[in-house]
Design a protein around this nucleic acid. Structure first.
Lengths: 231, 231
DNA sequence: CGCCGTCTTGACTCGCCTCAACCTCGGTGG
DNA sequence: CCACCGAGGTTGAGGCGAGTCAAGACGGCG
């Protein structure tokens, strides 16, 4: 087993209040793993055997309807815990987690969860703060889906990704992981055709630039306008 | 202060594992309150000063968009904790809670939250289980809003209310609190006109009976069919 | 009795989905 | 090196679901 460096965890909220020795303990219990794009970390409905920390990359959380269409529930950015079903009294995963791009994760067996909560100061509190943020995000999406038109929803989806994983580049802000029109349609409850039309239009207006599976937003401010006003 | 009976709490999950003396302690710290229909228990954005247990009635959780339209995030049935912002690292309430019908609640100051979690065996675990269930429900609604047509969404909304607070009556299952067409439209992201048309049609087909602000579903099975299939 | 909140119903409109055809890129194998 | 192929993307035409506009009925409450 290759030795993991303590600095990996020391800046991450759930572990921030821990000392070096504690972090060492935790790291020694972890199993690191690499996942390629599109690889699943765990599947919806499977027994929740491990919980994870995303060290690098982006995780795409997906649910599949009985009817067969997929929808993207949320994206998870580096530094966040995921697959924390045990924290919420679940014994199976409620959704599928796949690597949106190449990912580096640490995993622990669920049986360690109670120990972590009990033993490590602030772990529970910080974790539930993250849960709270996810709930907020879900709430916002519900409101969005219920009240806004497709154009605004797509704008919101882009902005959300920019905020969570956007990286500044010379001509704007870039979405750091591969993303297709179809993906965006699965996030917004629309079709890839409509998304394609919208992005084409926005590209003509100079709001963004896109190559295949790759988007750079050059005028985020404009996108914010689009996301809020119906005009 | 009128003395509250211990049996109020002994059957409710977060308190189930506690003994009589502990429940007594908790009750003595609680402030009981009654709310009339449409009265707000707390408002979105307000400082989260208390958390609550719903003893009787139904709570309607509402969010208001910048654009001014309201959407109903979820309903809370008797026996559930709500306003548990502190558990999720919030210091303001993320939504408004109003009484869907007459309600009886117990309230505690948030500063007691950490004490409850620490002192009472199983309180935290059971509470987070409830949080997990709410997350599931929200997830389902997201999928629903993103993939299903209006008719199916309305059917789902009705079924959800039946499951949570439905009461058997001689000719079917009744929704136990006052509910308008407009309310249903706020739950499903549609208009009261469309809801009205759907309910009229269903009433003609013998699936339900409705008076003003009052619905009895006479053929739940049929409603399940409608909620799943596009036909 | 008159008002207001609730509900109904019709007619029209339009946003977005569906259907369909085609293009472009990037990888793979002969 | 090129031919092929599949995934990803674009764009047009047409239709329908559901929103909007409009008018009114019903019932309860002050």
């Amino acid at each position: 087993m290759n030795q993991l460096d303590e600095s990996l965890l020391s800046a991450i909220p759930p572990f921030r209040r821990l000392d070096r020795a504690q972090i060492r303990e935790i790291l020694d219990l972890a199993t690191p793993a690499r996942f390629d794009e599109r690889q699943a970390i765990f599947e919806e409905g499977a027994e929740a055997s491990r919980f994870y920390l995303l060290l690098d990359g982006v995780i795409r959380v997906i649910r599949t309807t009985p009817g067969g269409d997929q929808i993207i529930v949320l994206h998870i950015a580096a530094g966040q815990l995921f697959g924390i079903a045990p924290a919420l009294g679940h014994d199976t995963y409620p959704a599928t987690a796949t690597a949106a791009g190449e990912c580096l994760v640490l995993g622990w067996p669920v049986r360690l969860w109670p120990t972590f909560v009990e033993k490590y100061q602030g772990f529970a509190t910080e974790t539930y703060k993250v849960v709270g943020e996810r709930i907020d995000e879900m709430n916002n999406r519900i409101v969005e889906l219920a009240t806004q038109a497709v154009e605004q929803r797509v704008a919101c989806a882009l902005l959300r990704m920019l905020n969570q994983t956007g990286k500044k580049v010379d001509n704007g802000i870039e979405i750091t992981f591969p993303i297709t029109r179809a993906n965006i349609s699965e996030m917004t409850g629309t079709t890839l055709h409509t998304v394609s039309r919208l992005l084409s239009a926005w590209e003509k207006q100079g709001i963004l630039e896109s190559a295949r599976r790759h988007i750079v937003v050059t005028d985020p401010h404009r996108l914010v306008q689009l996301s809020t006003s119906a005009a």
